[in-house]
Write a protein that binds this DNA or RNA. Structure first.
Lengths: 116, 116
DNA sequence: CAGCATCCCGGCAGATACTG
DNA sequence: CAGTATCTGCCGGGATGCTG
């Protein structure tokens, strides 16, 4: 354990706030192999509306995790790419993915148990 | 990277949903060393209201991450404790804590940059 | 002390329609 | 195709007061 405290105003909170949205982690992961266009992202992810996609990407851009590239063409072309900082989140995200892969069943079982 | 895909309906979403609340990760971390009473938790964490504390603990209990022990005493005494499943989340949480410790400044710098 | 009931607020997300 | 504007609903979070 590297963090000795974890309180209300702890800096560690920052990392969770970054991924506390429905799509943030999904988009970072979808961008892991390089620049992608919004259309591509919508197709590969599925279930995300164009508005929410833009909204989420801009939020990531605001936090310095994603860089936006706009090309003056017709029809317009835009690409989003992970920044160096954004790329450093891939490993932590994968840690949680691995956890879910291993323990997801237990969580769902507990949920169903408390339903009845 | 252990997860090959990360889409809208991916199981990895489960892990982020678990920690997508303001206090979930904070409470798990605060319980890492053993059972704690609500009063203790409020004191060590700070900035969380009694209602939200109970609300969050019950949510964790629902997901099988925390166990609640109630003792029939006067005044009433209650303790919350991490389950085996809940304890498996400590390492992933610490991964993010370490990330925030290392990259928190960069995120805050990016935020302030996009403000002006 | 632990916890519930109530009311309120803000942000995320979804659906839809429209602009360049 | 990319993005915006608007409206809507929902849930988490906070404040307050009351009960056992």
């Amino acid at each position: 354990m590297t963090t000795d405290a974890y309180l209300a105003d702890c800096r560690a909170r920052l990392a969770f706030d970054l991924l506390s949205n429905t799509w943030n982690a999904v988009l970072i992961w979808a961008l892991r192999e390089g620049p992608r266009r919004p259309g591509e992202l919508r197709e590969t992810i599925g279930g995300i509306s164009p508005k929410v996609l833009t909204q989420t990407l801009r939020r990531l851009e605001f936090n310095g995790l994603v860089k936006r590239h706009a090309y003056a063409e017709v029809p317009p072309r835009v690409e989003y790419e992970l920044t160096t900082l954004g790329r450093t989140l891939l490993t932590p995200i994968d840690t949680f993915g691995a956890w879910a892969f291993e323990h997801g069943d237990e969580v769902m079982a507990a949920q169903e148990r408390h339903d009845g």
